[in-house]
Structure formats: C-alpha cells, structure tokens
Nucleic acid binder design. Structure first.
Lengths: 205, 205
DNA sequence: GCCTGTTTTGACCAACTGGTAAAACCGACG
DNA sequence: CGTCGGTTTTACCAGTTGGTCAAAACAGGC
C-alpha cells in the first residue's frame, strides 16, 4: 500500500501533481488506451515503477483526472442562474466556457476523448449528475421564455449548442488553425465576437 | 505481395469491404492506437493473418478509411454554391451535414478522433484541400453579406459553427442521449428544427 | 480429376504493455 | 552514528501487440 494516510510530504504533493499534469497531457492527446504508463512517467520525470508507487494503476490516474474535471467543467453552468438579465446570463456562460477552451484545452480534449469513445468510465455521471443539472437549467431557460425575456427556443438543445460551439475551439484546435492559415493566428478574440453575435441574435425576442 | 492487380475477385471485394467496415467500427470507437488488428479481424470475421493478407498493415487500413472519408465529408460543403437563396443554401448545408451525423456517426467519430489527437495522419489535408475549399466558400458568404442578402457575420466562424453544431450530435451522441433521458429518444428531429431556427435568426438581415 | 493461382491457416517472433518484488537509497531524528 | 519511514531503482514477468512465414486448403477453368 502506498501513500499511507500519515502525512502528505512535500515530495508526494509535487510528484502527484507532476503525474496528473503529465497524464493530462498524454491522455488528452492519445485517449486512454492509446496512452502508455511509460509515456506518462517520462513526461512526469519519473520511472514507471516510481509512478506506480503514487498511483496503483493507469486506470486510477485516469479516474483521478476525470473526477477532478467533472466539477470544474460544470461550474460555469451552475453559475448561470435566474437572477439578472437572461441574455447576459447566457452570454456569460458562453464566455466562461470559451475561456475554458482557451485556457484548458487539454481538459476539454480529455473529456471529448472519453465521450466520443462511448464514455466507458463516466457514463453514470452523465445520466446522473450532469442530466440533473442540465434539466434544472433547462427549466430556468423555459421560465425566461415563458416570461418573454428571451425568444422561444429548445432549452436542452440551446445548452448542447453552447457546448458544441465553445468546445469546438479546443477539441478541433488543429483544424481551426489549419483552416485559418498561419499558426500565429489566435482565433479566440474573433470566436468570442462571433458567439456573442450568434447567441444575441438567437435569443433576442 | 497481396492483391495482385490481375483481377479483383468477388472474395476480395467482399473481404476488403468487411475489413473496412469492421475497421471503421473499431477505429471510431477506440482511436487508432486504441484499436487492435485482432479486434478488427474478429469484427470482420477473419483471422489476423488473413486480414493482413488484404491490407499490409494496421496503418494502411486506417489510411484507406481516411482517404475515402475526406471526399465524402466535404461534398455537402462543395454543394453549397452561389446560386439560389443564400439562407436556403446554408440551411441546406446544415441539413445535409446533420443527416450525415445521423446516418454516418462512425465516420464522424473516426474523423473527430483523428483531429482531437492532433491530426497526425491527415494534417496536410487540412491545411491543403480543406483550407482551400473553406476559403473559397467563405468568399461566397462574404459576397452574400456584401449584397445584403444575409446579415453580417464572420464567414469562417460561420462554417466552424455549422461543423461544431452538426457533428456534436454524432460525436457526443452518448452525452446527448444521457442528458435527454431515455435511450429511446431520437434527438435528430428536434435538433434539425433547432438548427434551422438558429441559423435563420443568425443570418436573416 | 488435375492444375494454377488465390485464400486461409497455424506456428511463430520481437517489441511493447501494465504491473510486481525486492533491494537500495535518502534525509530526519534520536 | 544508527535506524526508520518514505522514496527510488533494478530486475523481472506474463500477457498483448503488430507482423511474418511456410505450408495447407481452396477455388475455378480446362
């Protein structure tokens, strides 16, 4: 047994952090099966057995990453509440989600890999925690529509479209850059303007 | 050397087709590295050496799939031309793209896997063939805007958003179904209505 | 029923994979 | 100094992986 509950040493904190960062890099770039423990260990500056001293298995590293991610990922949606101007609330959610794509593209790709491959490890979370939160927020949106504060629209698909549009810039990053030409271009400023226009036109009654 | 140019026998046609179909199934579900030749062979009803009699390597099967895919994938965009009503042209493209997500989700996921993982095998195609086509179509959209036929919008990001929104229903299929509840729900009819509304409101001057 | 080219198989291999065991190392503390 | 917990390394293993090869089985035209 490793990492006895005694005390968490400085070395432990540093190494587990390095491992998780390296694992994020490798898993997000190759998927679970495509990633190897050796790759992760090398990226973390450790030997394979040393890495396995901190985490019992490859599976455990992946699980640790996904666990930490789920919450962070849903926080912006939680923050979209009934108070204030509805359009501004949606635009705020879009903006925050787009910022996450810009600042945490690896996390987005980790998630995308998991979902595309059938969500074998977080399926339950999707139809549990996630569905509940989305249903709840869809209800909020429905109220806004009923009160005539935003134009009529399908709330669930509105949320899907926010996910699709914002995550696209992280997940399909290579394609976006290839199509826009030089790699020196930062697509995000224009993406934000575009998405603000899109959702404003979509939701203005 | 296999598959000598002589004549393509019935068996060859049947087996290569079975292999490509099986490979599509496996690659789209696990990514390139995550897929094994044995899996593909079993799915195609062949032994591994027998499969390798038809294709020289795992790499070659994957390449054959991607080659065939690129054209099919871009066809709907090519079909979006200057003639006719601009809004109808865009909506037609959206509709066709959404149908592809519904009818060929495996192809969509194969593509998504490749791009998310950094497009190691079709990078050149993206900044070549793809970029050219997109630039050309962006020019068409720019004309529509100049002529006041549709509202002002960034053409490149408009195309990105069509990709993102339509492919989302294939690539994130599991999530969509999980959130919408029962698996017996078909999200596509509502998705089409939603996307038509979205792009109509976005582009109507 | 024989012959020629095609297809399939079984046995095999070297490299890689996730994971283990045990010994060696290291710094703190008595 | 010694020793004790935490840490790292070395050596190793069994299973899997992509791929090869020679020989066997099979087709179909004569």
């Amino acid at each position: 047994m490793q990492r006895p509950a005694r005390t968490i040493t400085r070395i432990q904190r540093k190494n587990t952090a390095a491992i998780l960062d390296a694992a994020l890099e490798v898993f997000s770039a190759h998927g679970f099966r495509g990633a190897t423990v050796d790759q992760i260990a090398k990226a973390a500056g450790l030997s394979k057995p040393n890495l396995l001293y901190y985490f019992p298995s490859k599976e455990a590293i992946h699980a640790a990453l996904l666990d930490g991610l789920m919450e962070t990922w849903l926080d912006p949606l939680r923050a979209m509440d009934e108070a204030g101007d509805p359009l501004e609330a949606v635009l705020g959610y879009v903006r925050r989600k787009l910022e996450m794509s810009r600042d945490f593209p690896r996390e987005s790709r980790l998630f995308a890999n998991e979902i595309i491959q059938g969500a074998p490890r977080i399926g339950p979370n999707l139809s549990g925690e996630l569905k509940e939160l989305v249903d709840q927020k869809a209800e909020v949106i429905r109220h806004w529509i009923e009160d005539g504060k935003i134009a009529e629209i399908n709330p669930h698909h509105l949320i899907f479209s926010i996910w699709a549009l914002t995550q696209h810039y992280a997940d399909f990053d290579v394609q976006v850059h290839a199509v826009l030409g030089g790699d020196h271009v930062d697509p995000y400023p224009e993406a934000q303007r575009y998405l603000e226009t899109l959702f404003t036109r979509l939701l203005t009654p």
